[in-house]
């Protein structure tokens, strides 16, 4: 078994192919995080400040994205796209579904960050003569950011790992590219280990950074 690791038919070209797959993974993550965060911030603030008859339906709709497997969401979205006749490439479909998926989780993070700011702090800001928007941008935003950022980093990494599922709608990203190579050279353990290593290298440093931020900000409390 170990001899097969030494005289492998895995070539530099294969590694390049996998790194290109990793590039696709990062590109998907990038667009999903941009879209998901923008939507999540809007929805999160709306959920935190709106009356129940806006809050409850919005929450229920977003909850669907958290209660249905991403794989199923991708398949349903992809076939729905064909039905209504939108001519998007799979990559766009993947980005849109991942962004909506991320926005559902991001909404909850933003909302809990927003609600973590004590009402008394906000009242104090207002009675010092700040306007509503000044209160939001100089008081609520900095405090909520500290609460939300560590979870947001965790969510971003989660979405990066979940991009592995888009191969189902025909996108060759990191994990799929490793599968393609496995089909050719028949060394699943070795090739998958390399894929795993690349994922680990993309995720671990950022995860550590998040943990450190969380720790440091907690000390100030």
């Amino acid at each position: 078994m170990f001899s097969s690791l030494l005289d492998t038919s895995f070539s530099l070209n294969d590694l390049w192919f996998m790194l290109k797959g990793a590039g696709v993974t990062l590109a998907l993550t990038f667009w999903a995080v941009i879209g998901g965060t923008l939507l999540g911030v809007v929805f999160g603030v709306v959920r935190a400040v709106s009356p129940w008859w806006i809050n409850a339906p919005l929450g229920a709709v977003l909850d669907v994205f958290r209660s249905v497997p991403l794989l199923i969401q991708l398949v349903v979205a992809n076939s729905f796209k064909t039905i209504v006749g939108i001519n998007w490439p799979p990559f766009t479909v993947g980005c849109v579904v991942l962004a909506l998926y991320m926005s559902a989780y991001c909404t909850e993070i933003v909302r809990s960050g927003f609600l973590a700011v004590p009402t008394t702090t906000r009242r104090a800001a207002r009675s010092l003569g700040m306007s509503y928007w000044q209160d939001l941008s100089f008081i609520v935003f900095p405090i909520a950011l500290r609460v939300a950022l560590p979870s947001w980093i965790g969510l971003t990494l989660g979405v990066m790992k979940d991009t592995a599922m888009v191969w189902w709608i025909g996108i060759v990203e990191l994990l799929r590219s490793s599968q393609v190579i496995v089909t050719r050279i028949q060394e699943p353990l070795f090739v998958l280990s390399i894929a795993g290593l690349i994922y680990f290298l993309m995720s671990f440093p950022i995860a550590r950074l998040g943990a450190r931020l969380e720790k440091r900000w907690r000390e100030n409390e």
């Binding site: 994990l175 998958l192 795993g196 680990f200 671990f204």
Partner: peptide, 15 residues
Amino acid sequence: RNTPALFQIYMAYFG
């Protein structure tokens, strides 16, 4: 925590 669940299942099956 730092690799996709799909990767872990692949590892259990193919690896």
